[in-house]
């Protein structure tokens, strides 16, 4: 059953957020990479089937929320013979530990991958303090 096991790593995780959506579609938490540079926090989410028109990114009180709808039309007059995934809603929220500048958030969506770059505010950036020798 090793093949099965590998697959679960890729499988979408169904989200159990406290706030429910009005759409009756399964909600998934997108697989996400987050890394932090000196000047920015970068959030990368896998959101296959989502285009820029069906994507919402909000930052409110230090919480970054990502919401996207997979706009996939299923073929009509076809019988589903093998189901490996479901399409639906991607939603995930992150509490940002560092201060970010709300004016300097850049988001890019390409090939179903969302990349949000949140620039840190001046005071949250590490500062080098020069040491003077006496």
């Amino acid at each position: 059953m090793s093949a099965r096991k590998e697959e679960t790593a890729v499988e979408k995780k169904e989200s159990s957020g406290a706030v429910e959506l009005t759409r009756d579609q399964p909600v998934f938490a997108p697989a996400t990479d987050i890394y932090e540079r000196d000047d920015a926090v970068v959030v990368v989410c896998d959101m296959p089937g989502v285009d820029e028109k069906h994507l919402e990114i909000t930052l409110e009180e230090g919480v970054l929320t990502i919401l996207g709808y997979a706009d996939e039309t299923e073929p009509t007059d076809h019988e589903l013979v093998y189901r490996g995934y479901r399409s639906g809603v991607f939603r995930r929220a992150f509490t940002l530990g560092t201060d970010v500048d709300p004016e300097k958030i850049r988001a890019k969506l390409s090939n179903g991958v969302l990349r949000v770059e949140l620039a840190k505010s001046e005071k949250a950036q590490p500062r080098k303090i020069p040491v003077q020798a006496e």
Partner: peptide, 13 residues
């Protein structure tokens, strides 16, 4: 389906 990798759906018409 054999092996891991991306999830697949198959529709038969």
């Amino acid at each position: 389906a054999e092996g891991g990798g991306p999830p697949i759906n198959v529709w038969s018409g």
